[in-house]
Design a protein around this nucleic acid. Structure first.
Lengths: 224, 224
DNA sequence: GTCTATATCATGATAGAC
DNA sequence: GTCTATCATGATATAGAC
Protein backbone atom coordinates (compact mmCIF):
# COMPACT_ATOMS: atom_id res chain seq x y z
CA UNK A 1 0.00 0.00 0.00
CA UNK A 2 1.07 3.52 -0.66
CA UNK A 3 0.57 4.68 2.93
CA UNK A 4 2.84 1.97 4.23
CA UNK A 5 5.59 3.12 1.91
CA UNK A 6 5.05 6.67 3.11
CA UNK A 7 5.56 5.78 6.73
CA UNK A 8 8.63 3.87 5.72
CA UNK A 9 9.98 6.85 3.81
CA UNK A 10 9.45 9.12 6.81
CA UNK A 11 11.34 6.76 9.10
CA UNK A 12 14.14 6.29 6.59
CA UNK A 13 14.60 10.04 6.36
CA UNK A 14 14.59 10.42 10.14
CA UNK A 15 17.12 7.62 10.62
CA UNK A 16 19.47 8.99 7.98
CA UNK A 17 19.12 12.54 9.31
CA UNK A 18 19.94 11.43 12.83
CA UNK A 19 23.20 9.84 11.71
CA UNK A 20 24.21 12.66 9.40
CA UNK A 21 23.32 15.52 11.74
CA UNK A 22 25.35 13.73 14.40
CA UNK A 23 28.37 13.37 12.13
CA UNK A 24 28.28 16.72 10.30
CA UNK A 25 26.06 19.05 12.27
CA UNK A 26 22.96 20.78 10.97
CA UNK A 27 24.59 23.23 8.60
CA UNK A 28 27.06 20.63 7.41
CA UNK A 29 24.34 18.23 6.31
CA UNK A 30 22.58 18.93 3.03
CA UNK A 31 19.22 17.55 2.07
CA UNK A 32 20.83 15.87 -0.92
CA UNK A 33 23.08 13.99 1.48
CA UNK A 34 20.12 12.95 3.62
CA UNK A 35 17.86 11.80 0.81
CA UNK A 36 20.76 10.06 -0.88
CA UNK A 37 21.63 8.09 2.24
CA UNK A 38 17.97 7.32 2.90
CA UNK A 39 17.42 6.16 -0.66
CA UNK A 40 14.47 8.46 -1.18
CA UNK A 41 13.76 11.32 -3.49
CA UNK A 42 15.07 14.79 -2.77
CA UNK A 43 11.58 16.27 -2.70
CA UNK A 44 10.43 13.81 -0.04
CA UNK A 45 11.85 15.85 2.85
CA UNK A 46 9.79 18.89 2.05
CA UNK A 47 6.71 16.78 1.38
CA UNK A 48 6.88 14.96 4.70
CA UNK A 49 8.40 17.58 6.99
CA UNK A 50 7.93 20.93 5.29
CA UNK A 51 11.48 22.19 5.73
CA UNK A 52 14.92 21.21 6.88
CA UNK A 53 14.40 22.90 10.25
CA UNK A 54 11.17 21.02 10.87
CA UNK A 55 12.96 17.81 9.98
CA UNK A 56 15.60 18.54 12.61
CA UNK A 57 12.93 19.17 15.22
CA UNK A 58 11.21 15.91 14.36
CA UNK A 59 14.51 14.04 14.69
CA UNK A 60 14.72 15.27 18.28
CA UNK A 61 11.07 15.02 19.11
CA UNK A 62 10.64 11.32 18.42
CA UNK A 63 13.54 10.48 20.78
CA UNK A 64 13.03 13.11 23.47
CA UNK A 65 9.36 12.30 23.91
CA UNK A 66 10.33 8.79 24.86
CA UNK A 67 13.39 9.74 26.94
CA UNK A 68 11.72 12.44 28.99
CA UNK A 69 8.61 10.34 29.42
CA UNK A 70 10.80 7.60 30.81
CA UNK A 71 12.55 10.04 33.12
CA UNK A 72 9.25 11.25 34.50
CA UNK A 73 7.97 7.69 34.89
CA UNK A 74 11.11 6.70 36.85
CA UNK A 75 10.87 9.76 39.06
CA UNK A 76 7.17 9.19 39.73
CA UNK A 77 7.91 5.62 40.72
CA UNK A 78 10.74 6.60 43.08
CA UNK A 79 8.70 9.32 44.74
CA UNK A 80 5.75 6.98 45.13
CA UNK A 81 7.92 4.43 46.91
CA UNK A 82 9.59 6.98 49.16
CA UNK A 83 6.26 8.14 50.51
CA UNK A 84 7.05 11.84 50.74
CA UNK A 85 10.55 11.53 52.10
CA UNK A 86 13.40 13.10 50.09
CA UNK A 87 15.10 10.84 47.57
CA UNK A 88 18.80 10.13 47.70
CA UNK A 89 20.90 12.24 45.30
CA UNK A 90 22.20 9.05 43.72
CA UNK A 91 18.64 8.02 42.87
CA UNK A 92 17.89 11.35 41.23
CA UNK A 93 21.13 11.43 39.27
CA UNK A 94 20.53 7.90 38.07
CA UNK A 95 16.98 8.73 37.09
CA UNK A 96 18.12 11.58 34.91
CA UNK A 97 21.55 10.60 33.58
CA UNK A 98 21.34 6.85 34.02
CA UNK A 99 18.13 6.76 32.01
CA UNK A 100 19.93 8.74 29.31
CA UNK A 101 22.87 6.38 29.13
CA UNK A 102 20.76 3.27 29.24
CA UNK A 103 18.92 4.66 26.24
CA UNK A 104 22.20 4.42 24.37
CA UNK A 105 22.16 0.65 24.72
CA UNK A 106 18.72 0.47 23.20
CA UNK A 107 18.91 0.66 19.42
CA UNK A 108 15.13 0.88 19.23
CA UNK A 109 15.34 4.38 20.70
CA UNK A 110 18.20 5.73 18.68
CA UNK A 111 21.09 4.18 20.59
CA UNK A 112 24.39 5.94 20.80
CA UNK A 113 23.79 7.88 17.60
CA UNK A 114 21.03 9.98 19.06
CA UNK A 115 22.90 10.45 22.31
CA UNK A 116 25.90 11.85 20.51
CA UNK A 117 23.68 14.08 18.42
CA UNK A 118 22.08 15.39 21.59
CA UNK A 119 25.43 15.97 23.28
CA UNK A 120 26.79 17.87 20.36
CA UNK A 121 23.66 19.92 19.85
CA UNK A 122 23.62 21.15 23.44
CA UNK A 123 26.78 23.15 22.73
CA UNK A 124 25.86 24.38 19.25
CA UNK A 125 22.52 25.87 19.92
CA UNK A 126 21.20 27.60 16.86
CA UNK A 127 18.29 29.73 17.91
CA UNK A 128 15.57 27.56 16.47
CA UNK A 129 16.80 24.34 18.06
CA UNK A 130 17.60 25.95 21.41
CA UNK A 131 14.08 27.25 21.89
CA UNK A 132 12.71 23.91 20.77
CA UNK A 133 14.86 21.97 23.24
CA UNK A 134 14.01 24.36 26.07
CA UNK A 135 10.33 23.63 25.54
CA UNK A 136 10.83 19.87 25.22
CA UNK A 137 12.84 19.78 28.44
CA UNK A 138 11.00 22.24 30.65
CA UNK A 139 8.72 19.81 32.49
CA UNK A 140 11.31 17.14 33.24
CA UNK A 141 13.81 19.80 34.33
CA UNK A 142 11.40 21.37 36.75
CA UNK A 143 10.60 18.00 38.29
CA UNK A 144 14.23 16.92 38.73
CA UNK A 145 15.24 20.34 39.99
CA UNK A 146 12.56 20.15 42.65
CA UNK A 147 13.68 16.65 43.65
CA UNK A 148 17.28 17.80 44.07
CA UNK A 149 16.27 20.84 46.11
CA UNK A 150 14.35 18.55 48.43
CA UNK A 151 17.18 16.02 48.64
CA UNK A 152 19.82 18.65 49.43
CA UNK A 153 18.09 21.20 51.64
CA UNK A 154 21.36 22.58 53.00
CA UNK A 155 22.85 23.39 49.59
CA UNK A 156 21.94 26.76 48.07
CA UNK A 157 19.62 26.33 45.11
CA UNK A 158 21.90 28.31 42.82
CA UNK A 159 24.69 25.90 43.64
CA UNK A 160 22.53 22.91 42.77
CA UNK A 161 21.55 24.45 39.45
CA UNK A 162 25.18 25.10 38.55
CA UNK A 163 26.18 21.59 39.49
CA UNK A 164 23.37 20.16 37.43
CA UNK A 165 24.74 22.19 34.57
CA UNK A 166 28.23 20.80 35.15
CA UNK A 167 26.82 17.28 35.24
CA UNK A 168 25.17 17.85 31.89
CA UNK A 169 28.51 18.85 30.45
CA UNK A 170 30.40 15.89 31.85
CA UNK A 171 27.71 13.55 30.55
CA UNK A 172 27.73 15.15 27.15
CA UNK A 173 31.46 14.57 26.79
CA UNK A 174 31.16 11.10 28.24
CA UNK A 175 28.77 10.26 25.43
CA UNK A 176 30.82 11.89 22.70
CA UNK A 177 33.97 10.16 23.89
CA UNK A 178 32.57 6.67 24.06
CA UNK A 179 32.52 5.91 20.39
CA UNK A 180 36.26 6.09 19.78
CA UNK A 181 36.14 9.87 19.80
CA UNK A 182 38.96 11.08 21.98
CA UNK A 183 38.35 14.72 21.10
CA UNK A 184 41.26 16.67 22.38
CA UNK A 185 43.22 13.75 23.69
CA UNK A 186 44.75 10.92 21.76
CA UNK A 187 45.29 9.11 25.01
CA UNK A 188 45.26 5.37 25.00
CA UNK A 189 42.55 4.09 27.29
CA UNK A 190 44.30 0.98 28.54
CA UNK A 191 41.30 -1.31 28.66
CA UNK A 192 39.45 0.29 25.79
CA UNK A 193 38.45 -2.95 24.18
CA UNK A 194 35.03 -4.33 23.44
CA UNK A 195 34.15 -4.88 27.08
CA UNK A 196 34.96 -1.32 28.09
CA UNK A 197 31.77 0.14 26.77
CA UNK A 198 28.59 1.66 28.03
CA UNK A 199 28.10 -0.78 30.87
CA UNK A 200 31.39 0.42 32.33
CA UNK A 201 30.88 4.03 31.40
CA UNK A 202 27.70 4.33 33.45
CA UNK A 203 29.25 3.50 36.87
CA UNK A 204 32.32 5.54 35.96
CA UNK A 205 30.24 8.55 35.14
CA UNK A 206 27.93 8.10 38.11
CA UNK A 207 30.86 8.10 40.54
CA UNK A 208 32.18 11.29 39.02
CA UNK A 209 28.82 13.05 38.94
CA UNK A 210 27.96 12.18 42.52
CA UNK A 211 31.42 13.20 43.70
CA UNK A 212 30.93 16.57 42.07
CA UNK A 213 27.36 17.01 43.24
CA UNK A 214 28.26 16.31 46.86
CA UNK A 215 31.58 18.16 46.92
CA UNK A 216 32.24 20.74 49.66
CA UNK A 217 30.78 24.11 48.81
CA UNK A 218 33.11 26.76 47.43
CA UNK A 219 34.26 29.53 49.77
CA UNK A 220 33.70 32.68 47.77
CA UNK A 221 35.17 34.92 50.42
CA UNK A 222 38.51 33.15 50.23
CA UNK A 223 38.93 33.56 46.49
CA UNK A 224 39.06 37.27 45.80
CA UNK B 1 52.00 52.38 5.58
CA UNK B 2 50.58 49.54 3.63
CA UNK B 3 52.06 46.83 5.82
CA UNK B 4 50.53 48.33 8.92
CA UNK B 5 47.11 48.28 7.30
CA UNK B 6 47.70 44.68 6.30
CA UNK B 7 48.42 43.57 9.84
CA UNK B 8 45.37 45.47 10.92
CA UNK B 9 43.23 43.73 8.32
CA UNK B 10 44.49 40.34 9.43
CA UNK B 11 43.60 41.05 13.05
CA UNK B 12 40.22 42.46 12.14
CA UNK B 13 39.40 39.30 10.22
CA UNK B 14 40.56 37.09 13.07
CA UNK B 15 38.55 39.04 15.65
CA UNK B 16 35.39 38.97 13.57
CA UNK B 17 35.82 35.28 12.76
CA UNK B 18 36.24 34.39 16.41
CA UNK B 19 32.95 36.04 17.33
CA UNK B 20 31.02 34.68 14.37
CA UNK B 21 32.36 31.12 14.53
CA UNK B 22 31.42 31.14 18.20
CA UNK B 23 27.89 32.33 17.50
CA UNK B 24 27.10 30.38 14.32
CA UNK B 25 29.63 27.59 14.03
CA UNK B 26 32.00 27.02 11.14
CA UNK B 27 29.50 25.96 8.51
CA UNK B 28 27.01 28.56 9.64
CA UNK B 29 29.43 31.44 9.11
CA UNK B 30 30.02 32.63 5.57
CA UNK B 31 33.03 34.57 4.44
CA UNK B 32 30.76 37.39 3.36
CA UNK B 33 29.49 37.61 6.95
CA UNK B 34 33.04 37.69 8.28
CA UNK B 35 34.39 40.28 5.88
CA UNK B 36 31.28 42.37 6.30
CA UNK B 37 31.63 42.44 10.08
CA UNK B 38 35.36 43.10 9.85
CA UNK B 39 34.84 45.91 7.37
CA UNK B 40 37.26 44.45 4.87
CA UNK B 41 36.97 43.20 1.34
CA UNK B 42 35.67 39.74 0.59
CA UNK B 43 38.86 38.75 -1.21
CA UNK B 44 41.00 39.63 1.83
CA UNK B 45 40.38 36.30 3.59
CA UNK B 46 41.80 34.26 0.76
CA UNK B 47 44.66 36.69 0.31
CA UNK B 48 45.72 36.60 3.97
CA UNK B 49 44.81 33.06 4.96
CA UNK B 50 44.42 31.07 1.76
CA UNK B 51 41.11 29.43 2.64
CA UNK B 52 38.28 29.40 5.13
CA UNK B 53 39.70 26.32 6.85
CA UNK B 54 43.11 27.90 7.26
CA UNK B 55 41.42 30.94 8.72
CA UNK B 56 39.67 28.77 11.31
CA UNK B 57 42.97 27.15 12.26
CA UNK B 58 44.60 30.54 12.67
CA UNK B 59 41.75 31.69 14.90
CA UNK B 60 42.56 28.82 17.25
CA UNK B 61 46.30 28.93 16.89
CA UNK B 62 46.80 32.49 18.08
CA UNK B 63 44.87 31.78 21.30
CA UNK B 64 45.97 28.22 22.00
CA UNK B 65 49.65 29.01 21.63
CA UNK B 66 49.31 31.46 24.47
CA UNK B 67 46.99 29.33 26.62
CA UNK B 68 48.97 26.11 26.40
CA UNK B 69 52.25 27.97 26.84
CA UNK B 70 50.82 29.44 30.02
CA UNK B 71 49.67 26.01 31.19
CA UNK B 72 53.13 24.58 30.69
CA UNK B 73 54.75 27.55 32.40
CA UNK B 74 52.49 27.15 35.44
CA UNK B 75 53.14 23.41 35.61
CA UNK B 76 56.90 23.90 35.30
CA UNK B 77 56.81 26.39 38.12
CA UNK B 78 54.78 24.13 40.41
CA UNK B 79 56.99 21.14 39.76
CA UNK B 80 60.09 23.21 40.34
CA UNK B 81 58.80 24.32 43.73
CA UNK B 82 57.71 20.84 44.77
CA UNK B 83 61.19 19.45 44.24
CA UNK B 84 60.21 16.07 42.80
CA UNK B 85 57.33 15.36 45.15
CA UNK B 86 53.87 14.76 43.61
CA UNK B 87 51.68 17.83 43.24
CA UNK B 88 48.28 18.06 44.85
CA UNK B 89 45.37 17.26 42.53
CA UNK B 90 43.93 20.69 43.25
CA UNK B 91 47.11 22.31 41.99
CA UNK B 92 47.03 20.34 38.76
CA UNK B 93 43.36 20.98 38.13
CA UNK B 94 43.85 24.67 38.76
CA UNK B 95 46.83 24.77 36.44
CA UNK B 96 44.83 23.31 33.60
CA UNK B 97 41.25 24.51 34.09
CA UNK B 98 41.91 27.55 36.26
CA UNK B 99 44.32 28.92 33.69
CA UNK B 100 41.62 28.41 31.07
CA UNK B 101 38.97 30.26 33.04
CA UNK B 102 41.28 33.08 34.03
CA UNK B 103 41.96 33.56 30.34
CA UNK B 104 38.28 34.40 29.97
CA UNK B 105 38.74 37.47 32.13
CA UNK B 106 41.55 38.69 29.91
CA UNK B 107 40.17 40.42 26.84
CA UNK B 108 43.67 40.67 25.39
CA UNK B 109 43.65 36.91 24.87
CA UNK B 110 40.18 36.49 23.46
CA UNK B 111 38.19 36.61 26.67
CA UNK B 112 34.99 34.69 26.99
CA UNK B 113 34.39 34.69 23.26
CA UNK B 114 37.28 32.39 22.50
CA UNK B 115 36.49 30.19 25.46
CA UNK B 116 32.98 29.63 24.24
CA UNK B 117 34.23 28.95 20.75
CA UNK B 118 36.62 26.37 22.15
CA UNK B 119 33.96 24.72 24.26
CA UNK B 120 31.57 24.43 21.38
CA UNK B 121 34.20 23.20 18.95
CA UNK B 122 35.26 20.35 21.22
CA UNK B 123 31.90 18.70 20.62
CA UNK B 124 31.57 19.45 16.92
CA UNK B 125 34.81 18.11 15.65
CA UNK B 126 34.94 18.30 11.91
CA UNK B 127 37.86 16.23 10.75
CA UNK B 128 40.15 19.08 9.84
CA UNK B 129 39.77 20.93 13.12
CA UNK B 130 39.93 17.80 15.27
CA UNK B 131 43.31 16.74 13.91
CA UNK B 132 44.52 20.30 14.28
CA UNK B 133 43.42 20.54 17.92
CA UNK B 134 44.90 17.14 18.73
CA UNK B 135 48.28 18.35 17.56
CA UNK B 136 48.03 21.70 19.34
CA UNK B 137 47.12 19.97 22.60
CA UNK B 138 49.35 16.90 22.58
CA UNK B 139 52.27 18.28 24.59
CA UNK B 140 50.29 19.96 27.33
CA UNK B 141 48.02 16.92 27.64
CA UNK B 142 50.94 14.55 28.07
CA UNK B 143 52.44 16.74 30.76
CA UNK B 144 49.24 17.14 32.78
CA UNK B 145 48.39 13.48 32.38
CA UNK B 146 51.78 12.53 33.82
CA UNK B 147 51.32 14.94 36.71
CA UNK B 148 47.95 13.44 37.59
CA UNK B 149 49.26 9.88 37.39
CA UNK B 150 51.99 10.86 39.81
CA UNK B 151 49.60 12.67 42.13
CA UNK B 152 47.12 9.79 42.25
CA UNK B 153 49.22 6.62 42.23
CA UNK B 154 46.43 4.47 43.65
CA UNK B 155 43.90 5.36 40.96
CA UNK B 156 43.99 3.31 37.73
CA UNK B 157 45.30 5.37 34.86
CA UNK B 158 42.28 4.63 32.72
CA UNK B 159 40.08 6.05 35.45
CA UNK B 160 42.13 9.23 35.60
CA UNK B 161 41.89 9.67 31.84
CA UNK B 162 38.12 9.25 31.92
CA UNK B 163 37.77 11.71 34.75
CA UNK B 164 39.91 14.23 32.93
CA UNK B 165 37.55 13.80 30.04
CA UNK B 166 34.53 14.38 32.28
CA UNK B 167 36.21 17.48 33.69
CA UNK B 168 36.67 18.84 30.19
CA UNK B 169 32.97 18.41 29.57
CA UNK B 170 31.89 20.09 32.78
CA UNK B 171 34.23 22.99 32.09
CA UNK B 172 33.01 23.32 28.54
CA UNK B 173 29.43 23.68 29.72
CA UNK B 174 30.47 25.96 32.52
CA UNK B 175 31.90 28.32 29.95
CA UNK B 176 28.98 28.08 27.57
CA UNK B 177 26.52 28.70 30.40
CA UNK B 178 28.20 31.74 31.84
CA UNK B 179 27.22 34.21 29.19
CA UNK B 180 23.48 34.01 29.74
CA UNK B 181 23.30 30.76 27.81
CA UNK B 182 21.16 28.42 29.83
CA UNK B 183 21.14 25.79 27.12
CA UNK B 184 18.62 23.21 28.12
CA UNK B 185 17.46 24.95 31.23
CA UNK B 186 15.64 28.22 31.55
CA UNK B 187 16.29 28.11 35.25
CA UNK B 188 16.63 31.32 37.13
CA UNK B 189 19.99 31.52 38.84
CA UNK B 190 18.96 33.41 41.94
CA UNK B 191 22.04 35.59 42.29
CA UNK B 192 22.80 35.84 38.61
CA UNK B 193 23.60 39.51 38.64
CA UNK B 194 26.74 41.30 37.60
CA UNK B 195 28.75 40.06 40.54
CA UNK B 196 27.94 36.43 39.85
CA UNK B 197 30.41 36.05 37.02
CA UNK B 198 33.66 34.38 36.30
CA UNK B 199 35.23 35.09 39.69
CA UNK B 200 32.44 33.07 41.26
CA UNK B 201 32.32 30.46 38.55
CA UNK B 202 35.93 29.44 39.06
CA UNK B 203 35.61 28.29 42.70
CA UNK B 204 32.24 26.74 41.89
CA UNK B 205 33.69 24.74 39.08
CA UNK B 206 36.84 23.83 41.00
CA UNK B 207 34.82 22.36 43.85
CA UNK B 208 32.82 20.27 41.43
CA UNK B 209 35.82 19.07 39.43
CA UNK B 210 37.81 18.09 42.50
CA UNK B 211 34.82 16.33 43.99
CA UNK B 212 34.49 14.30 40.84
CA UNK B 213 38.19 13.64 40.45
CA UNK B 214 38.53 12.33 43.99
CA UNK B 215 35.24 10.44 44.14
CA UNK B 216 35.24 6.79 45.26
CA UNK B 217 36.08 4.45 42.41
CA UNK B 218 33.20 2.66 40.70
CA UNK B 219 32.62 -0.99 41.53
CA UNK B 220 32.22 -2.63 38.19
CA UNK B 221 31.45 -6.03 39.64
CA UNK B 222 28.42 -4.70 41.45
CA UNK B 223 26.73 -3.14 38.44
CA UNK B 224 26.01 -5.99 36.00
C1' DG C 1 3.09 9.78 -2.50
C1' DT C 2 6.73 9.94 -5.70
C1' DC C 3 9.28 11.66 -9.24
C1' DT C 4 11.82 15.09 -12.69
C1' DA C 5 12.98 19.41 -13.57
C1' DT C 6 13.90 23.78 -12.27
C1' DA C 7 13.64 28.35 -9.86
C1' DT C 8 16.23 31.19 -6.88
C1' DC C 9 19.77 32.21 -4.13
C1' DA C 10 24.21 31.85 -1.37
C1' DT C 11 28.54 29.92 -1.12
C1' DG C 12 34.02 29.59 -1.50
C1' DA C 13 37.34 30.88 -4.47
C1' DT C 14 39.89 33.46 -8.09
C1' DA C 15 41.36 36.55 -12.10
C1' DG C 16 42.98 40.72 -13.07
C1' DA C 17 42.80 45.99 -12.83
C1' DC C 18 44.61 49.39 -9.75
C1' DG D 1 47.33 44.91 -0.45
C1' DT D 2 42.91 46.04 -2.07
C1' DC D 3 39.21 46.12 -5.07
C1' DT D 4 35.36 44.61 -8.62
C1' DA D 5 33.49 41.21 -11.14
C1' DT D 6 32.66 36.67 -11.91
C1' DC D 7 32.97 31.56 -12.05
C1' DA D 8 31.45 27.16 -10.66
C1' DT D 9 29.08 24.83 -7.42
C1' DG D 10 25.79 23.48 -4.20
C1' DA D 11 22.06 24.91 -1.31
C1' DT D 12 16.67 24.90 -0.10
C1' DA D 13 12.49 24.78 -1.93
C1' DT D 14 8.66 24.13 -5.28
C1' DA D 15 5.78 23.26 -9.62
C1' DG D 16 3.63 19.96 -11.97
C1' DA D 17 3.48 15.29 -14.47
C1' DC D 18 2.49 10.65 -13.12
Amino acid sequence: MLEVRAVDTRERILDASEKLFMANGFDGTSMRLITGAAGVNLAAVNYHFGSKESLMQEVFRRRLDWLNGERLRVLDEMERKSGGKPLKPSQIVDGFFGTLLRMAQDEAHGGITFLRLLGRTLTEPSDFIRTFLAKEYSEVMERYKAALFKALPDVPKAEIVWRFHFMLGATSYAIAGTDALRLVTDWQIEDADATDRLDRLLPRLMSFLLGGLRAPLPQFSATA
